[in-house]
Design a binder for these strands. Sequence first.
DNA 1: CACGACGAAA
DNA 2: AGGAGTTCGTCGTG
Length: 567
Amino acid sequence: MYDSHHHPLIVQSDLAVLLDESKPNAQAAREKLVQFAETVKRAGSVHTFKITALTLWNAAAAGMAAEDVIQCLKQFGRYELPFQAEASIKRLMGRYGRLSLISEAGKLYLQGEPEVLGQLAGHASVGSFVKHRENPDRWELEAGCRGSFKQELTRLGYPVIDRAGFHLGEELQVQLRGQTLGNRHFSLRDYQREAVDRFYQEEAVHGGCGVVVLPCGAGKTVVGIAALARLGRATLILTSNNTSVRQWRDELLDKTTLTSEEIGQYGGALKQVRPVTIATYQILTHRKSKDSAFSHMKLFSERDWGLIIYDEVHLLPAPVFRMTAELQATRRLGLTATLVREDGCAEDVYSLIGPKQYDMQWKTAEAGSYIASVSCTEIRVPLTKEKEQQYHEATARSKLRLAAENPGKIPVVRELLQTHADKPTLIIGQYLNQLHELAHELQAPLLTGEIPQHERQVLYERFKAGEIKVLIVSKVANFAVDLPDASVAIQLSGSFGSRQEEAQRIGRLLRPKQGDNSAWFYSLVTERTKETEFAVKRQVFMLEQGYPYDRRSSGIDPSSGWEAVNR
DNA sequence: CACGACGAAA
DNA sequence: AGGAGTTCGTCGTG
């Protein structure tokens, strides 16, 4: 008899893969699957994944072969692997490594088997990049098209390995402290060293560009710093906000032999361009008015950078992609916790920053105790009868807000606070009205954008010291890097459909914990409203990382008042 | 000059 | 599809 327990996957011929979470082997299958597929959605216990050209090429870049993918699908698949699916995987993955860009005597060439180049010749868009079809297996390309040509080839479904090399850039004397100085010792974790090794690849020619994917709290900054130290060249670090700029500077001072005179901050009042310069994406894309030029893009050429680090590469804005297309001879490292982009520019990350060089799943980091073990629970809260009436009469616009501000959530929060009474807890919400109300009800401090920076610091300190157990925060929490560690987070309401937001918020909980290393994330969602749909979308990313959400009802009867909860 | 306040942008 | 937050540059004030 066929034992479906060991076969939790259903593979469709269009390369959609369904994972039945209720099967005992589901976790093992998921761990394999996420190496070459991305999560699309979840309905009940069935998770939908999609294998795409990009997910296959990234897997190939990380060392997987088509046979490994097929073997996994056969091992865990409930039915015979559809012929078309197998053929597509072989075809797409087989294209990886067939084309390469090389540089000789200052000229740029595309190399590949005549058959593959022949297929390319059929695409009109390719012609404008080709200067001279020198040989059936080697074309000379127009100068300066290295980035845009790779973009176009990726779009057409032909990945190309870039072996055209990199220029070195200005030399920089720098070492990691752990290796040279005994007094302030720190050493790379094994996986961080491995990530840097894969990026660097001294012998192989296709190192020097690409993306390292690590969960929040696993030390991406350290990987960037180690890469910088390994190369020993002037480095431009781009990141998402000013808090993060300061963090990079502090970490560089702490972990390397660089002095503060060698590190420049470019943003706000400071416009320092130094051997290591840290800037935000925002200042690069800043414009005086809608149709004036970018005034800070010149930073890319103000020094002879040997390395550009793109922190949070999933947030990289389009104009920076355009600059990056022209800077393909500069080594570059992308750092992120997720390659998922809301704007669908994952292809540009692949072709312009580079393939995924290293990846560690959150669950793996958790097993190694590098980050805390988080359990995620979605709690469905009903509306009261009157509110439900209001909801149905409301315009589409105000519906979401009514659902998000469901007062029924407040007693659920109280209950959760009781359950985790001794743990430092963050309550995170989207609407200031709601947060003010809750702050009043709970007599807990509230942190919003209106609170000046120095007062924020005071709140952080008191929370860190344990004087405050519960802190209510607005969207400031999304990017405030210096917000202290918590063990419990309650999401009262989230913004519509952003996968990143959910991940950021859970990231708050990931720093390893004393004792059993556990943390809890609760997402409060109003039943039978639009909010449940958005919640599903936000959770996709966490599912991809192997964090299943428990789902439960608040168990409160809205017509009987809320007292029942505080028994 | 060092600030804080303000509007614009994404 | 909307609200909150951040950051830039400018302008006014002490």
